[in-house]
Simulated scan of single mutants.
Amino acid sequence: MIVFIINALVEQSCAVRRISADFDACPDNLSTDDLKRYFASLIESHSWSTVKLDRNGLHKHL
């Protein structure tokens, strides 16, 4: 159970770091259009599993 929690936290922090680096801004300050552009770009450049992990990770923070 502990390993699952640690993995979830690592995945969430990766998602926050990735989108923060992409926009050079706090994810809390991004608009819906920013998020749509980000995920459209992510779909083109990363695997579907990464897209899902980022979506789920950011959902917890936004």
Rank of each mutant, 00 (worst) to 15 (best):
D24V: 05
E11S: 00
K36S: 14
S41H: 12
S47D: 05
L42S: 11
L53T: 02
W48H: 03
I19Q: 11
K60W: 01
R17Q: 09
I2L: 11
L53E: 06
G57R: 13
S13A: 02
D34P: 07
R37G: 14
R17D: 08
D33A: 13
C26K: 15
Y38A: 10
D28I: 11
H59D: 04
W48D: 05
H61T: 09
V16R: 04
N56Q: 14
I43M: 08
L58I: 06
D28R: 13
C26G: 04
L35F: 14
H59T: 10
L53H: 08
G57N: 11
C14S: 06
T32H: 10
E11V: 00
E11D: 03
A15N: 06
D28V: 10
I6V: 11
P27H: 13
T50M: 02
F23N: 11
I2G: 09
S47P: 00
D34W: 05
M1L: 12
V51A: 01
A8W: 01
S13G: 00
P27E: 15
M1S: 15
R55L: 09
A8S: 14
A21Y: 03
H59N: 14
W48M: 10
E44H: 07
D54V: 04
D28G: 06
D54N: 11
D28P: 01
L35Q: 12
S31R: 13
S13D: 08
N7T: 05
S31I: 12
F4T: 06
H61Y: 04
R55P: 02
Q12W: 08
P27T: 13
E11A: 01
K52M: 08
E11N: 01
S49W: 02
S49M: 03
A40P: 00
K52E: 10
L35N: 06
S20V: 03
L58C: 01
H61R: 15
G57K: 10
S41Y: 07
T50R: 01
N29F: 08
V16W: 00
V51M: 00
A25K: 14
K36Q: 15
R37E: 14
A8C: 05
D54G: 02
V51L: 00
T50N: 02
I19S: 05
I2T: 14
V16H: 03
F4Y: 12
E44L: 08
D34C: 11
A21C: 07
E44K: 13
A8P: 00
L62S: 09
R37N: 15
K36A: 13
I6W: 06
A15M: 07
C14M: 12
H61I: 14
L9W: 02
S20E: 03
N7E: 06
A25F: 03
F4A: 08
I2K: 14
Y38H: 15
I6Y: 10
A25T: 12
D54I: 03
H46W: 04
L9H: 02
D34N: 15
S41A: 10
A25L: 09
I43D: 10
R17P: 00
L42Q: 06
L35R: 10
D22M: 08
